[in-house]
């Protein structure tokens, strides 16, 4: 398989994610623009104008091009598994120069910037397998403004779903205008500490405006969205009706004595894009 051609595919995936937000997010922002007034409306108007400009100029919509996370689903019969990691890393370094991306990987021991968005454990690649002969890659470039507002709590199971709701809403309130609302809230319930955070992030991959297929979870998402939008935080924390565009919940079974809840907040610039690589090496960005 042509490594350079694969690299081009990953590069186009990153370019798409950094310069165009998905249509479901644009629809939600337009709905928010329609109902807001005053300073909140001014923010949304600028956000929507920025989305257009970024797309037309093929420039990253936000200067914080984020830490790049790749969710890779490899078909069990996909022929290029062995080279994918290297291809992704090389594409990230190229994207940093060619798009360009802001160099965002800093050595935590020396506070030096690596300069190419590579580094220890970065880019973050999460591997999974699926039946088939293709590979599906989703990238989620996420800035620190929103990522810094993430929170985990190991709740006591006795607090139940009411306790879960309280923690999610408290986390959103504490974040206020800092994560660039209107936000998308990803919530992971259950599993272990790391799994709850992982599920919170994975929950962000689902399109805005869609609910979980399980009615009980879908209801929790709707309830949380309603409570969060009553906080009045509003776009950029300047007050308003739209604090969140959506809330997505994913769950894992829990230990009888544990109720981990992971909250991962995404900014309004909810950037994500996906790529399919076919077994012959051809690819499409979606």
């Amino acid at each position: 398989m042509d490594t350079k051609h694969l690299e081009d595919g990953i590069l186009q995936l990153i370019l798409k994610a950094e310069t165009e937000i998905p249509p479901d997010v644009i629809t939600a922002l337009k709905q928010a623009y329609a109902v807001e007034t005053g300073a909140a409306k001014v923010q949304l108007e600028a956000m929507l104008a920025n989305v257009e400009k970024a797309k037309n100029k093929r420039c990253p919509m936000c200067q914080d091009t984020g830490i790049l996370t790749f969710f890779v689903n490899i078909g069990t019969r996909f022929p290029a598994t062995g080279i994918l990691k290297q291809v992704i890393e090389q594409a990230v370094a190229r994207a940093t120069l060619e798009i360009p991306l802001r160099p965002n990987t800093v050595d935590p021991m020396r506070s030096t910037n690596h300069g190419d968005n590579l580094g220890s454990y970065l880019p973050h690649i999460l591997w999974d397998f699926e039946p088939g002969d293709s590979a599906h890659i989703i990238t989620l470039p996420k800035g620190s403004g929103s990522e810094n507002m993430s929170a985990l709590q190991m709740l006591s199971p006795s607090v139940g779903l009411d306790g879960v709701k309280r923690f999610v809403v408290e986390t959103v309130k504490k974040a206020g205008g800092r994560p660039c609302p209107p936000i998308v809230v990803g919530v992971g319930i259950g599993g272990s500490a790391d799994l709850a955070m992982n599920l919170g992030k994975r929950a962000l991959l689902r399109p805005v405006g869609t609910h979980h297929t399980e009615p009980l979870i879908a209801q929790l998402e709707k309830d949380l969205l309603e409570i969060i939008n009553k906080t009045g935080i509003g776009p950029m924390g300047l007050g308003g009706k739209t604090t969140a565009l959506d809330v997505h919940v994913e769950v894992a079974h829990r230990h009888p004595a544990s109720l981990p809840v992971g909250v991962v907040i995404q900014c309004w610039a909810d950037r994500r894009a996906s790529l399919v690589i076919h077994p012959d090496g051809s690819w499409e960005v979606q």
């Binding site: 600028a46 956000m47 920025n50 400009k53 420039c59 919509m61 936000c62 900014c267 309004w268």
Partner: peptide, 13 residues
């Protein structure tokens, strides 16, 4: 004064 967060291209212009 607050500039809309994430509106990076608008600011760069």
């Amino acid at each position: 004064a607050a500039f809309p967060g994430g509106a990076g291209v608008l600011a760069a212009e």
